[in-house]
């Protein structure tokens, strides 16, 4: 029974992530690939790789924006990368924020970029928390698994 409750919790979490626009149908693709390919742990693997990657990129951007003379092309290249990996995992909100971020890079606006960085960071941390909760729930559900339901 506890497994069923956990499963409900997971379903509720996922549907709220979709309805809030944190993730999009690309994330569903990942889930489908996991289920159809018989590869448990695939979503968890990709999500973890994404989080590590995004964390690294955000730190790189922060460092660049602290320089006395900001290399906006470099910042833009990192934002582009982050946008790409966000799109790949279906992290829709982070992806959209990156698109706005790129505009500030083109305008070479340090203030704009700093603001955009704060938004991206915030969106990313929020998403990462939810991903972590999701993975924890999945682990707990799996621990019950032995055909009991």
């Amino acid at each position: 029974m506890a497994a069923a409750a956990l499963r409900d919790q997971l379903t509720a979490l996922l549907s709220s992530m979709f309805s809030q626009g944190l993730v999009d149908e690309q994330f569903q693709q990942l889930q489908m690939l996991q289920d159809e390919g018989g590869t448990p742990g695939f979503v968890s693997e990709v999500v973890t790789l994404f989080c590590d990657d995004a964390d690294r990129i955000i730190n790189e951007i922060a460092t660049l924006l602290e320089q006395p003379v900001v290399n906006f092309d470099k910042v833009d290249a990192y934002v582009h990368q982050l946008k790409g990996s966000s799109a790949s995992v279906g992290a829709q909100k982070v992806k959209f924020t990156c698109m706005q971020f790129r505009q500030f890079c083109q305008d070479k606006s340090r203030d704009g970029c700093l603001m955009a960085l704060a938004v991206v960071r915030n969106d990313f941390y929020d998403l990462r928390n939810k991903f972590q909760t999701m993975l924890q729930l999945e682990q707990q559900i799996q621990a019950y698994d032995p055909k009991q339901q």
């Binding site: 390919g37 695939f42 790789l49 990657d53 990368q81 990996s85 995992v89």
Partner: peptide
């Protein structure tokens, strides 16, 4: 060059 993207394309191809 992106690790998450490599994982994704690898899984798509294997599937």
């Amino acid at each position: 060059d992106s690790l998450p993207d490599r994982k994704l394309i690898e899984r798509l191809l294997k599937t």
